[in-house]
């Protein structure tokens, strides 16, 4: 009986995981489609726990290589079951280039375009507002050459 319980537990976990993978896959496809008439290049799947009160919000970081004379679009889509709302930021070394959330105005954008003038390594940071927990997908798309 113990064996049966273990097997059921294992398979339930595996089944849940496969549904999760399917949901994320759908969210990625939806996020790529929402980016508009552009070409999907890459996605960044993020699942973060809530941060500690007063501490820095947990952040996922991705290094990516972008090319000169290309307009890229960076989109963010928060999974429906998330507690927090995801924010995507683009950095060049320590310089913040752009964000889907402008704290000065409190405005959110589903995506922003980046007119790249220098081939090199950049960083995408994804976090959730107020350090809440959540799942999200960031998408990098190719818009056009400059």
């Amino acid at each position: 009986m113990k064996n049966i319980r273990s097997i059921i537990l294992f398979l339930s976990f595996a089944f849940t995981f496969s549904i999760y993978a399917q949901d994320i896959s759908q969210l990625t496809a939806q996020c790529a489609a929402n980016a508009g008439d552009v070409m999907y290049l890459k996605d960044f799947v993020v699942k973060l726990d809530a941060g500690t009160p007063g501490g820095a919000p947990p952040t996922a970081r991705f290094a990516l290589l972008l090319s000169k004379s290309v307009v890229y679009r960076l989109s963010i889509c928060t999974a429906p079951n998330s507690e927090g709302e995801a924010v995507l930021q683009l950095f060049d070394m320590n310089t913040l280039l752009g964000s889907t959330f402008i704290s000065a105005t409190g405005k959110d954008f589903p995506y922003f375009d980046f007119k790249c003038q220098k081939t090199g390594v950049y960083h995408v940071f994804i976090s959730f507002k107020e350090g809440k927990a959540g799942e999200a997908v960031g998408v990098l798309s190719y818009v056009k050459k400059l």
């Binding site: 752009g98 922003f112 980046f114 007119k115 081939t119």
Partner: peptide, 10 residues
């Protein structure tokens, strides 16, 4: 629409 223009030049 939000657009970020990088003014570095290579």
């Amino acid at each position: 629409m939000l657009t970020i223009v990088q003014n570095d030049k290579s």
